[in-house]
Simulated scan of single mutants.
Amino acid sequence: MTPLTTFALVLAVLFFIAGFVFTVFPVLPGILIIFAGMLVYGLLAGFENLGLLFFVGQAVAVGLSYLADYAAGVWAVKKYGGSSAAVWGSIIGVLAGIFVFGPFGIILGPFLGAVAGEILAGGAPSRALRAGIGTLVGFLGATGIKLVIGAGMVVWFFSRV
């Protein structure tokens, strides 16, 4: 292993660690950071072992993580009794929450959005609170799924280098 390859591998591992941290504490998109670590490795060490199929597969994994994030939130809001208004409120809450609450907006935004959406649609406050709790359950479930996807991505990377 050349010094440049070693440096590239160490840098990739740092990206992977940061990616897992940001998956659990969603300030930045953790799965994208993991993917970026693979790209950095390829740029520095060469793409001999990481071909087009590898990166297409990794991109699909990134897409699946975002789909899981969305689907888990919607499923949990519905499971906890939220209406379509609560689902839309949680989606809007994610976007608005980031700007209003910063990093904590990823958690607070969907919760408050689901509660507000349910109340605006005429739902009872208890139902609105359950829908908000559903967003938290969905967030935790999606985080677990993203950690599994990220681990699979990293294992695949190390099986190739």
Rank of each mutant, 00 (worst) to 15 (best):
N49R: 13
G19R: 09
A59F: 15
A45T: 07
A96D: 12
V56A: 15
V56K: 12
S159M: 15
V77N: 03
I31D: 08
A116E: 08
G57Q: 09
V115R: 01
L147C: 08
G152I: 08
L108S: 03
G81P: 04
V115H: 04
L11K: 08
L53F: 06
V137R: 08
F158K: 04
A116I: 15
L140G: 12
R127A: 14
S126R: 12
G93H: 11
A114L: 03
A124E: 15
P3E: 15
G93E: 09
V21Q: 05
I133G: 11
G117V: 10
G82M: 02
Y41E: 10
V40M: 08
G138K: 07
A124I: 04
G117T: 05
L140N: 00
V27R: 06
G109L: 07
G122V: 11
K146G: 00
T5G: 11
F54G: 10
A85M: 09
G117F: 10
L39Q: 09
I31N: 11
V77D: 01
W156T: 12
L129V: 07
L32E: 09
L43W: 12
I92A: 15
F22E: 00
W88S: 03
A68Y: 03
V137I: 13
L108Y: 09
I17A: 14
G57I: 06
E48W: 00
P29S: 01
V56S: 12
L108C: 06
V148N: 11
E48R: 04
V94C: 04
M153G: 01
G141W: 00
T135P: 11
I133D: 02
L14N: 09
I106T: 15
L39P: 13
R127W: 00
V13E: 07
L52E: 14
L108D: 00
F55D: 08
A76R: 07
I149Y: 03
Y80M: 15
L136V: 14
N49L: 06
I98L: 15
V60P: 05
S84I: 03
I33Q: 00
F55Q: 04
L140Q: 01
Y41P: 02
L50P: 10
A36T: 10
G132P: 13
T143K: 01
F20S: 02
A128M: 01
A121T: 04
R130D: 11
I34V: 13
S83V: 02
G57C: 08
I34A: 01
F104T: 14
V94Q: 02
A8I: 10
A71W: 00
A68R: 08
I119E: 02
M1I: 12
I119W: 07
T135N: 10
Y80W: 12
F20G: 01
V56L: 15
V40W: 05
F158V: 13
L9E: 12
F158Y: 14
V137H: 05
L147A: 06
G134D: 10
V60S: 09
L52Y: 09
A131H: 03
A116Y: 10
T135L: 04
L32V: 12
G37N: 06
G19V: 10
F54A: 09
A86C: 06
P3S: 13
A71P: 06
I91T: 05
G152D: 05
L44I: 14
G132D: 07
L120K: 11
V40D: 03
L11D: 01
K78M: 06
G102D: 03
L52C: 01
I107V: 15
V77E: 05
L4A: 05
Q58C: 13
G97A: 15
